[in-house]
Amino acid sequence: MSRFFIIAGVGLILLILISLMLGDYPLGPAQLLDALFQHGDPARRLIVWQIRLPRTLLAIMVGAGLGASGAALQGYLRNPLADPGIVGISASAGLGAVIALYFGLTAISIWVLPGAAMAGAGLAAAVLMVLARGRASITSVILGGVALSSLSVALTALLMNLSPNPWALSEIAYWLMGSVADRSFAELAFAAPLILGGIAVLMLSAPALNALGLGEEAAHSMGVSLHRTGQLVVFGTLLCVGAGVAVAGAIGFIGLVAPHLVRPFFGARPGALILPSALIGGILLLAADILARTLSGPGTPLYLGVTTALLGAPFFLYLVIKNRRAFP
């Protein structure tokens, strides 16, 4: 367990250094250290502090939120295939943002787009919380989430369909592919507190998620309030994923894959996977961003959501094949 944190921690630090050195203007280790400590060439300092550092930290934050909410949702829904996409929060946040883009509201303020995404996510979360009320079965939350997700995707497609011009359409399409490029500390200051708060809320549900592994009836008899657990998971996911989509667009597969990667080290208890999944989620998204930047050609940036899906889907298939006997 502690070995996992040491290896993952060292890996994360190495990736951060690579992320800060890599780009159109590559920096050596000495130049990077100078720039980090505000010495040397002002242009390098600007690149490191204003462009690469916010991008790097934002990728880690968004990935951590996706990883933590994936672990909590898999535990709550007791389904190893669950991720923030399945309950409709990602798609609804995406719809909120697309509405803002479609009506040109983003010109009003830089906060309109993230605000609209959070509002979309909040609406979906409110519907899910109503579904999780009382003694309702958790299946109703999954089914409601799938319906919400489909509706949001359909409405997003409708808005793209009705786009007044190709430029507006491409703006929406590119935004939906997800990216942390050209983000500043302002976006980080918006997303980080929400995501960290979301992870803390998800951690509160950890003991109940472990108990839910024995089924709803056993968990309820053991003193677990299904209603409160559902609220914590949905609210925590709203904060983590809503804020993530608000600043970086729709990014898939991190929430699905991260818990599977940490399960061999931490056992199968869902509550014990939330924090390690957050760490691995951050590492994965940063690695995906570094890869996207490396593979991007001049004028044709590779989008983050595309990279995570291209890497995540085959890797997930490999995990399923390797562990097919371990699923109960």
């Binding site: 007791r78 472990n210 108990a211 089924g215 009836e217 208890r269 869902p270």
Partner: peptide, 22 residues
Amino acid sequence: PQNGPVHWAMRVHDLVRLGRFA
């Protein structure tokens, strides 16, 4: 419960430990 499910491949000790939830 009768035929209670176990959704994850939990270790025996971790599972029994859940009995102390309350």
